[in-house]
């Protein structure tokens, strides 16, 4: 793994307009993705992980979205580019994989044409060359009969095959960065395993950097090199994958890990996080955003202006509350145990 930064997010803030006010869905995110590195961004719905992905690609609807900060890629700040300058980067240097392979493909276009389309905009290949390359790509993503699939329409393929086509589209121009937004969520387990293995394989071959957006900690554990845990628009913990699973520090990370019905442990009860994820308009913007949901921890244990602090080498945690955090179950504090 080289240490060259591939993508650098600096104080990225993405705000959406709701009733003439702007609310930040991604709030002051600073994160670096190195070449050939898989960084997972994990969190529950509404934490801002998908908004973050779309901000990097510049795919938010214009007029209703405000982007601040820097997204540095190849020496350029993507946020300052015009749409047509951005179009030269999208699909060529940054590819994207979406969640639902059924809706992510145009139902009226053959798979072959959809793969060739990005080459049309980023290369000068002849149509014969494009077809040859599309067939190679289909083979590369494990489609058993590329010639046939080339001519097929998306509805004629199974979910797993469709997702392979989506991946082929994303890597068509050999991008240095791929953003995968919940790439396996809509798939069956066995297919999910195949797609994960395929992505890992391709990543190793092509030395691509991957931003993996997911809510599934199992997928994170299998794929990521580093993990950023997001809550309410902020990164609350950032560490390499082994550290994060072995020594999770932030209360939110620990709560999430404890709520998974894992095949490894057979606990009777799962941990439940108190309360609900606040909506964009009701987000507490001051202090620790997770405070309300761990109200058995004393107020003075939280910081007033929590920052993402390096607590050990390459392990970052937001707010000091992690130092004092315990689960109510651990000390038999039944008043706070939520069922």
């Amino acid at each position: 793994m080289s240490n060259q930064p591939l993508l650098e997010l600096k104080n990225l803030r993405t705000s959406f307009r709701i009733n003439n006010n702007y609310y930040a869905a991604v709030d002051d995110v600073t994160l670096t993705i190195k070449e050939n590195e898989v960084v997972a961004i994990v969190g529950e719905s509404g934490c801002g992980k998908s908004a973050l992905a779309l901000s990097i690609m510049g795919l938010h609807p214009q007029g209703r979205t405000k982007l601040e900060g820097n997204v540095n890629f190849n020496g350029k700040n993507l946020l300052s580019l015009t749409t047509s300058e951005m179009n030269k980067i999208r699909g060529k240097d940054i590819g994207m994989i979406f969640q639902d392979p059924l809706t992510a493909l145009n139902p009226l276009m053959t798979c072959g044409r959809q793969i060739e389309e990005s080459m049309t905009y980023h290369t000068n290949l002849s149509s014969g060359k494009k077809k040859q390359k599309a067939l190679e790509l289909l083979k590369k993503v494990g489609i058993p009969n590329p010639e046939r699939t080339y001519k097929q329409f998306p509805h004629e393929l199974s979910g797993g095959m469709r997702q392979r086509v989506v991946i082929a589209i994303a890597i068509a121009c050999e991008p240095s960065l791929v953003i995968a937004d919940e790439p396996t969520t809509a798939l069956d387990v066995t297919i999910q395993a195949q797609i994960m293995d395929l992505l890992k394989d391709l990543q190793r071959q092509m030395k691509t950097g991957i931003i993996l957006i997911t809510h599934d900690l199992g997928v994170v554990a299998e794929m990521a090199d580093r993990v950023a845990v997001m809550y309410a628009g902020e990164i609350v913990e950032l560490a390499d994958v082994k550290t994060l699973f072995k020594n999770p520090l932030h209360p939110y990370t620990r709560s999430l890990l404890n709520s998974i019905p894992s095949t490894a442990s057979e606990k009777d009860r799962l941990h439940v996080i108190k309360g609900i994820v606040p909506s964009l308009q009701n987000l507490p913007r001051e202090g620790c955003r997770f405070k309300e949901r761990i109200d058995w921890i004393d107020d003075h244990n939280h910081e007033e202006h929590p920052i993402l602090r390096e607590v050990e080498a390459n392990h970052y945690v937001r707010c000091t509350c992690y130092n004092h955090f315990h689960f109510p179950e651990e000390i038999g504090d039944s008043k706070y145990v939520v069922s």
Binding site: M57, T83, I89, G95, F98, Q99, N106, Q114, E117, Y121
Partner: peptide, 22 residues
């Protein structure tokens, strides 16, 4: 607002082609 339109934009297809092609 459909996903495949997002896919097209993510490929770098320009806005007028996004409309005509997709």
């Amino acid at each position: 607002i459909k996903d495949f339109v997002k896919t097209a934009r993510a490929k770098g297809v320009n806005e007028s082609k996004v409309y005509t092609q997709h």
